[in-house]
């Protein structure tokens, strides 16, 4: 009967609206797959054109990209470390190498950061492994923890003649 069919359609529409409203409320308060992002871009803000040969002590520019999709505010530290062929990036403590620079940033959920960073490598050397490690501040332990997220660049540093 037409009356029952119309009634059924209207009730289905009402049920659907209710489900959409409830789902929207629920998903606005949860993050399904939390993750942070770390990226190093070349001087043209693109993935490429990275410097491979630099002069010792001479400044060069890269772009640091950090994204927060953890579902909540995060305090990140990006440590720039200098190693070599034999350096290993440990999953707990990062690379056991001297820290060249530290960049600190606090990001809200779904917020990103893209800023130029100017670096300079002090000593000449071949195949220098420049590692960018992402550390996250843990409010429970009041320490920065390393989540095994890093980027790296290989560069040759020549001395100034």
């Amino acid at each position: 009967m037409i009356e029952d069919q119309i009634k059924g359609v209207l009730l289905a529409v009402i049920l659907l609206l209710g489900l959409i409203g409830a789902a929207q409320y629920y998903y606005s308060h949860t993050t399904s797959e939390p993750f942070p992002e770390l990226g190093i871009l070349g001087p043209n803000q693109k993935i490429g054109d990275y410097p491979t040969n630099v002069l010792a002590g001479q400044n060069f520019t890269l772009y640091l990209y950090v994204g927060n999709h953890e579902g909540h505010v995060e305090y990140f530290n990006v440590l720039v470390k200098l190693g070599n062929n034999d350096s290993v990036v440990n999953g707990t403590n990062g690379m056991n190498a001297p820290v060249l620079a530290t960049y600190r940033i606090i990001l809200e959920n779904n917020q990103t950061y893209l800023e130029p960073i100017t670096l300079s490598l002090p000593n000449p050397g071949q195949n220098i492994r420049m590692v960018f490690e992402l550390w996250t501040y843990n409010t429970s332990t009041n320490t920065f923890t390393y989540d095994y997220i890093y980027n790296q660049l290989w560069v040759n540093v020549t001395g100034v003649v």
Partner: peptide
């Protein structure tokens, strides 16, 4: 959200009772 769901529930009852 509660008000929205409440209005929808009321609308459902009204539809069920008075559609015909």
């Amino acid at each position: 959200l509660s008000a929205f769901l409440g209005v929808l529930a009321l609308a459902g009852v009204l539809v069920y009772l008075f559609t015909g």
